[in-house]
Computed example of a mutant assay.
Amino acid sequence: MKAVVCKAWGMPDSLAVEELPELAPGPGEVVVDVRAAGVNFPDVLIVQGKYQFKPALPFTPGNELSGVVRAVGPDVAGYGIGDKVIGFIPIGAFAQQALVPARALMPMPPGMDFDTAAAITLTYGTSHHAVVDRAGLKAGETMLVLGAAGGVGLAAIEIGKALGARVIAAASSDDKLAVCREHGADATINYSTEDLREAIRLATGGKGPDVIYDPVGGQYAEPAFRSIAWRGRYLVVGFANGEIPKLPLNLALLKGASLVGVFWGEFAKREPKANMAAMRQMMGWLAEGKIRPHISGRYRLEETAQALNDMAARKVTGKIVINP
């Protein structure tokens, strides 16, 4: 079977597609024929050795996938050959076959296509954990989403709307903001052309947002945090900008505000039952049309480096997938 291989830390162009032995499942494991694999910003960092998780070399990157069960190992119940499944693994998804622990699988809902199934675990899982679990966003509250046209950003918009909140989307171009409006944003801010603090003030009538969802970091973090409402919750989701901001902590004191860390991967590992309950809620929202992953690009396995380069260059709106 063919797989993308990272042999040394470096930029995506250093990745190779190689022929590897077919996989065999061990106890509690399932081999899946991968039909689609979601691409995420952490994939760009992992191949450079810059992410929190640093796998041993060589390895195959990619962690969210959908496909068809090819083989089932001992002690696996509930899955059989030919079943359509969704999986999340630390590494190994950018390949024609993936080895997945049965506990990291869930059945694909009837009628769902493979690309959508591969686009829901990390982005929507992260945003649900952030918005519902960590921020406790309530109906009638206002949430500001930075980097709103990315995968987690669009997911946060849709989840906020599903909860009955007002959502303000901030992104770097009018084209990206148009996509945000298509996914439910009530108001938009172009922080490339507008003063962010003033735009937030106008969009919230001077009150400030109750929740700020920040997967970007960098220069927009401090002006956003200065604009937060009393008892606001600032969600630290990631640093796509590449710069980890240093916030004056007196701002949290003055606003009675909370800085809240969001690490979905660790949450899913430590609290698997809570994570699966969240996924079940989102599958219900998907069936109701309240959430709908936006897939803006599809790539062949041999185009994985290009997919990661496009992600790094912020050319992506919503999600992109690899189709092995």
Rank of each mutant, 00 (worst) to 15 (best):
K2V: 04
A3D: 05
A8Q: 13
A8T: 14
M11N: 03
V17E: 06
E18Y: 01
L20F: 10
E22G: 07
L23T: 08
G26N: 06
G26K: 12
V30E: 02
V34R: 11
A37Y: 12
G38I: 13
F41N: 01
P42V: 06
D43S: 00
V44W: 02
L45N: 04
Y51W: 12
P55D: 04
P58W: 15
T60F: 12
P61W: 15
E64M: 07
L65G: 03
L65C: 07
G67V: 11
V69P: 05
R70Q: 02
V72Q: 00
V72W: 14
A77S: 11
A77L: 13
D83G: 13
I86G: 01
R103M: 13
R103V: 15
L105V: 11
P109A: 13
P110D: 07
F114Y: 11
D115L: 14
I120D: 08
T121R: 14
Y124V: 03
H128R: 09
V131M: 07
V131I: 10
D133N: 14
A135N: 07
E141N: 08
L144S: 03
L146R: 08
G147K: 06
G147I: 11
L154A: 00
E158C: 05
I159N: 01
A165I: 06
I168V: 08
I168P: 03
S172G: 12
S173A: 06
D174K: 15
D175L: 13
D175G: 04
K176G: 01
A178W: 00
A178G: 06
V179N: 04
C180D: 02
R181A: 06
H183T: 04
D186N: 06
D186E: 04
A187M: 14
A187P: 01
I189L: 00
N190V: 00
Y191R: 06
S192P: 07
S192Q: 10
A199M: 13
A199H: 11
A203E: 00
G217L: 12
G217M: 13
G218T: 05
E222V: 10
E222Q: 15
I228Q: 06
A229Y: 14
R231W: 15
R231D: 01
G232E: 00
R233A: 08
L235M: 12
A240V: 09
A240Q: 10
G242E: 09
G242M: 13
L247F: 11
A257P: 03
V260L: 12
V260P: 01
G261S: 13
V262D: 03
K273P: 03
A274K: 07
M276T: 09
M276E: 07
A277F: 15
A278L: 12
R280Q: 15
Q281M: 12
Q281N: 09
Q281V: 14
M282I: 12
L286D: 05
Y299D: 01
R300W: 15
R300Y: 08
A305P: 14
K315A: 04
T317I: 10
N323L: 06
N323S: 00
